[in-house]
Design a protein around this nucleic acid. Sequence first.
DNA 1: TAGATTGTTAATCGATTAACAATC
DNA 2: TAGATTGTTAATCGATTAACAATC
Lengths: 215, 215
Amino acid sequence: MAHIRISRQALHRMPGYLQVLRCLHAAGKEFVTATDIAEVMHLNKIQVRKDIAAISRRPGKPMVGFSVAELLADISEFLAYENVKDAVLVGAGALGGALCRYSGFANYGMNIVAAFDANPQLVGTQIGGCKVYPMEELGHICTRLNIMVGVITVPDHAAQQVCDELCQSGVRAIWNFAPAHLTVPEDVILQNENLVVSLTVLSKRLAERLSNDIV
Amino acid sequence: MAHIRISRQALHRMPGYLQVLRCLHAAGKEFVTATDIAEVMHLNKIQVRKDIAAISRRPGKPMVGFSVAELLADISEFLAYENVKDAVLVGAGALGGALCRYSGFANYGMNIVAAFDANPQLVGTQIGGCKVYPMEELGHICTRLNIMVGVITVPDHAAQQVCDELCQSGVRAIWNFAPAHLTVPEDVILQNENLVVSLTVLSKRLAERLSNDIV
DNA sequence: TAGATTGTTAATCGATTAACAATC
DNA sequence: TAGATTGTTAATCGATTAACAATC
């Protein structure tokens, strides 16, 4: 399959396609058209067609569509979820705890194997499948387990320091939930997840809608 | 201020500007240039200049930049966080619980006032500032409190039904954390928050990076 | 066959980046 | 003054949508 290039936005749509295909597969559907998928996901059908064309290895059949099972396999292979990477999480608070408890990430290429926290009360406890370790052990555990991914769920004022420690411990990618603008070395991938951005968009759209109602 | 039109992507950057400006303000900085902000956020400086020009009410001064306090006020006003809306949350599991416990959303226009869950063991408990109610009370509580926003943190198979119930209860916007493609009436805003999308992007970027290492 | 559906090329749309005159 | 910075217009880039021949 080598290196297929798709747009950033197309990549963002892929997990959605996968989810729809899994539903159809579970429901016993054998074939699906781009139009069907577009309807379920509220997308433009030409866009779906083009996205699928970019990553599918076997062409669809006119009048029939795509084999659900084959398309499922093609997208899965493209997204390479099979190579599950072990990850550590720093900050075992409410959000961090929820992520530790959620086992579903393993289906998407990530497995949280240990948590760290500065709070001595949390150290030694078990959250979901993760034991909570003191911060001092971060470096040696990451090195020993050859950890590739670090998840940051600490308050924003502590985020950069935690980030630095993770990078020094050999982590190659960081999933950051703190609303802070982190700086990482060139060879480390930084993926920000900011709930506030999403909430802001919602809030703004709602405000516009409500002000239109009055008029 | 009326209706300023900015691009979808520019809106996504706004909470970041706000966060940086709050930091600078707390640090006692009086003025800031677009270039400064761009550096902290790892953005193009022309882009920052244009974004600011779109929403700021007072022009910046050449050679000086913008007043931190004034720019802060302009962005806050644009994002209209002041009109905090009460929200309910359905699904008081690990993620739902974390959202209930997080009080910071009030700074971003939303306040979760009640939680609902189908699990009788959770009903009656208190999570963060929220009491957990049985699903049967959803309609009458939403109506009574004139709730505008519903947060969905239930498993995906239950999401559409919960969504329907929220819409019937008069909610005008839905913040959906379930990895499902919901259908809402035309007059309801749907904002999806899908952690799996973010994780997929991270996983894909990391996989590419690692395969390059080998070569 | 007729017509829905595919894959692909061309046209449109939107967002980013570059260029530059105006300003302090 | 000289030069950094602003606001804005023009050029580039990328993504979406439209158009259409090929197919079953």
